[in-house]
Amino acid sequence: MTSWLDRTVLKKAKKYKILYLMILPGIVYLLINNYIPMFGIIIAFKEIDFSKGVFGGDWIGFRNFEYLFKTSEAYIITRNTILYNVVFIILNLVFAVALAILLAEVKQRFLKRFYQSAILLPYLISTVIVGYLVFSLLSMETGFMNKSVLPFLGLDPVMWYTEPKYWPVILTIVKLWHSVGYLCIIYFAAIVGIDQEYYEAATLDGAGKFKQIFHITLPSLTPVITIMTLMQIGRIFYADFGLFYQVTLDSGPLLPTTNVLDTYVYRALLKSGDIGMASAAGFYQSVIGFALILISNFVVKKINPDNSLF
């Protein structure tokens, strides 16, 4: 009897040993790639001195933060990051839902698939290539706008890459172009999942298309819309680095309207070599970003526990 028990325990231990061995490489990777950097954010409170090891510098308290928040840039990058994200979230939502509803009304299956493909294609393209597409339109000497569109309208060429005032609009259009397809597909899938009987009943009752959209489609979409939007709000402190770096061609004169937290950290770390500032801005972003994710999840949980992330 005992020998049988021993054997099952042994067998179990062996079984779990193999399972733990399988987990090991992935967990080690997460430790290196995610967890050590999480603790590494304390570098913001330290003097950088690589002779003492990466994280071995002396404690200097909040000095890096004092420098950071004394500059006007701290305000500008925070404002830009949040404002752009708010505009992106609202416009993406409106256009994606509208397109998804329209897409569901398309009867021909082939065209439905074709429209879907075309809207989603930009989402698959790397931001570098998006940068080229925008460049072919806006290049000062050879761009389509300056060489064809503006002369046709009788307007003077515009030095796009040195005029900050145009960029809030340009970046919003580019962002919509790049990402609306993704959200549209998500909402479209949710619409397809709505029980057709509701619509049949509504038609019998004489409800028109618009009535059906407002009383059946939109209410059915609300859970998906809530979760997708709150997930984006949770990431409102993180900017799309490629959009603000590549698409603007990293152009200095545009910074007042295009500098965001992510580009600031990158430039401070790798261009100007000011690791203290970079780490302070990075700490600020990580901690507030984390708080926002927790808060938005808390809100989702209050509204509908099934939709919360955890």
């Binding site: 950097p37 590494g40 954010i41 570098i43 990075g282």
Partner: peptide, 11 residues
Amino acid sequence: FNGGLVPTYLI
């Protein structure tokens, strides 16, 4: 939660 670019890059 993530540590962001600076510690990741340094490591």
